[in-house]
Design a protein around this nucleic acid. Structure first.
Length: 332
DNA sequence: TGCAGTGTTGCTTC
DNA sequence: CGAAGCAACACTGC
């Protein structure tokens, strides 16, 4: 479910909780979700072993970690030694992607797709039946980063659609996509502008929509145009802007485009304040639900009255396989 | 009981 | 070539 507000909530919490922590090992029982490197052993090694090159020879004499002890080259220079454990510098969001920035210019890039979410678990939470995280522990956790302080960053994902890749930094702007079908070689997707990027002005928004065809809802969800908006928030944004999801881009007047632009910012900002929507599976890193679903205006309200009290009944319409919700009275 | 529907994405088909 | 269909997976609700 995670769209921009849910991902942002998770990233904020991860930063607060685990920036600076050290990954000591990694666990996974659905290795298909790891797309780069494809071989698990390689992924595991790359993720957890830091390389420190050209240490002086004496440094190799003691306190070497168990694995990958260094060798001295024939010329007497110290070779490369490896240390188990890699630090997480910080966590950031790129569209709906979560990027763990690691030591040694590595990025662990995660896309949560439909039902993924991260939990930060310590022993106490794991064993406390009253803790909200408890209901999630052991349910659908398929991937864990085990930290050297005993905590775990767990990826819970009922439908197993989440994708993980480990890519050399410094920028994850391009992402090695999934191989859901075992035949693909992966492909690169371009990521559009972030709604909270300072360059995302109304003029920029208009420029992006020039020469675009199709209906406004699908464009809002096109990650290569603007990144972060999905099915829930595209419906919510268009209600806020009083624009029908069926409108074609080219038919929108300047004033309507302006309303859509303002609604994007307003709705997403409010949703982040409410810590996202927990329509079903989404939880924050403490296992708690968001609040936005309680104030949703149209999503999943088919047949109910419009909150604008205009006598409109919320309708559902399919565009491009997805359900959109809208009020025919106020959304023209 | 069985089947349509669910927050996402990208490949395949028409 | 662009839009629509479908698959990846597991569960819910009608």
């Amino acid at each position: 479910m995670p769209e921009l507000p849910e991902v942002q909530t998770i990233v904020n919490e991860l930063n607060k909780k685990i920036a600076g922590a050290v990954i000591s090992s990694v666990w996974c029982d659905w290795k298909k979700m790891v797309t780069e490197p494809k071989k698990w052993e390689e992924f595991e090694e790359k993720l957890t072993i830091s390389n420190f090159k050209f240490l002086p020879a004496f440094a190799t004499q003691k306190a070497l970690p168990a694995r990958n002890a260094s060798r001295i080259d024939a010329d007497g220079q110290a070779g490369q030694i490896s240390k188990k454990g890699r630090k997480i510098k910080r966590v950031k969001r790129v569209g709906k992607f979560i990027v763990f920035e690691l030591e040694d210019d590595l990025n662990l890039v995660v896309h949560l797709r439909m039902t993924g979410h991260f939990l930060v678990i310590d022993e106490k939470k794991r064993n406390n039946r009253k803790d909200p995280i408890y209901e999630k522990v052991n349910n659908y956790i398929h991937f864990k980063l085990i930290l050297d302080d005993g905590r775990e960053i767990a990826l819970s994902d009922l439908r197993k659609f989440a994708k993980i890749s480990l890519t050399p930094g410094p920028s994850p702007a391009r992402y090695l996509a999934s191989q859901d079908d075992a035949r693909g070689e992966g492909s690169m997707i371009g990521i559009g502008i972030d709604p909270f990027d300072e360059d995302f002005t109304f003029d920029k928004f208009k420029e992006l929509l020039e020469n675009k065809k199709g209906n406004i809802k699908q464009i809002l969800m096109d990650q290569s145009v603007i990144c972060g908006i999905g099915n829930i928030y595209s419906s919510e944004i268009l209600w806020e802007a009083k624009v029908s999801p069926l409108r074609k881009i080219e038919s929108l007047k300047n004033s309507e485009l302006e309303e859509v632009y303002k609604a994007i910012i307003r709705v997403l900002r409010l949703a982040i304040e409410k810590r996202g929507s927990s329509e079903s599976d989404y939880r924050d890193t403490d296992g708690k639900k968001g609040e936005y679903q309680n104030i949703q205006r149209v999503y999943q309200r088919e047949g109910q009255e419009c909150y604008r009290d205009d006598g409109g009944i919320i309708k559902r319409v399919k565009t491009g396989q997805r359900s959109g919700f809208w009020c025919p009275e106020c959304q023209k």
